[in-house]
Design a protein around this nucleic acid. Structure first.
Lengths: 154, 154
DNA sequence: TCTTGATAGTTACAAATGTAACTATCACAA
DNA sequence: TTGTGATAGTTACATTTGTAACTATCAAGA
């Protein structure tokens, strides 16, 4: 039976993700005590401006209970504010407060710099190959490709 | 602030891994009720023949408590047996029982077939590129390359 | 022999997570 | 208007996980 775990796709993915997640999360955990879901809500809201919890979940690929808890926590920090929709009172429009935006502005460059630092271990050619491979992996797994424009087909 | 989550490396990794893990784990979960750690211990022991919990942890990149619990569960199923080392009684030598081997023999081909099915969504050239990208990602993250020399380039 | 420190493995406890049930609201039709 | 089913979001409960503490054992010296 030639199933060696180290050659097996889901295992390799899992290991790579665990390593990356551990390294990246240290930045926002040490500096702000943020959890992974909280960081993602922060980044998503920063990108979208205003969004409902459902939209955040779709955009960040998180389960709605995870989103709900992360939002509640960020709201307690006064980094996120909410406003009920006038027409449909089930919907809460969420957005970053100025404190939330400020935190993200301090955090984002560090995250990007660390990403750059990781990628700098590869030559420019290798880096392009790595990103190409990642895109192909997403294709194989049926994950929709990155959209370039703001347009979002619903 | 141009940090878009969908372009951000750790986020993309996490999403791809979650999708893959969910699809793959269905096979051994539905058929045998195995958890991810249990499946990994099974595969690792199948590859190594006999190993200590520590070796399983190193080989499968799992925390020792995860290994301990997975082993305990597999032992209750009578799929794993243990024998204390004669010279160092802290060490337990673990191995698959014949029932464990039998289960793995039924499971492994299905796992490999599913991996093949995923990869079949790519052309041979794309598949090679994807695996190349994955290897480069591991390099960037400082994960030791597959030692077994024979690189799997389709 | 009797420390001291290291190691293999297990377990207690707390934090994080998913499932399912829940509340509140809406749309729509009988 | 009232009933039915769908949806946004929250919460209760059980499972899973990691951290830290624990047991048992070993090795190497004083």
């Amino acid at each position: 039976m030639d199933l060696r775990l180290e050659r097996f796709l889901p295992y390799r993915l899992n290991r790579a993700t665990a390593v990356a997640s551990k390294q990246f999360s240290r930045i926002y955990r040490d500096e702000f005590g943020l959890t992974v879901p909280e960081w993602r809500v922060l980044a998503t809201l920063s990108a979208l401006g205003t969004a409902s919890a459902k939209e955040i979940g779709r955009d960040s690929a998180m389960h709605k209970t995870k989103v709900s808890r992360a939002v509640a926590s960020l709201q307690q920090r006064r980094w996120v504010s909410r406003e009920t929709d006038d027409l449909d009172r089930r919907i809460e429009h969420l957005s970053l407060t100025s404190a939330g935006k400020s935190a993200f502005r301090r955090l984002a460059p560090k995250m990007l710099a660390f990403e750059e630092q990781i990628m700098a271990r590869l030559s420019p050619k290798e880096r392009a190959e790595m990103l190409r491979g990642l895109a192909l992996l997403e294709k194989a797994l049926g994950i929709p490709a990155i959209e370039d424009a703001e347009e979002k087909v619903v």
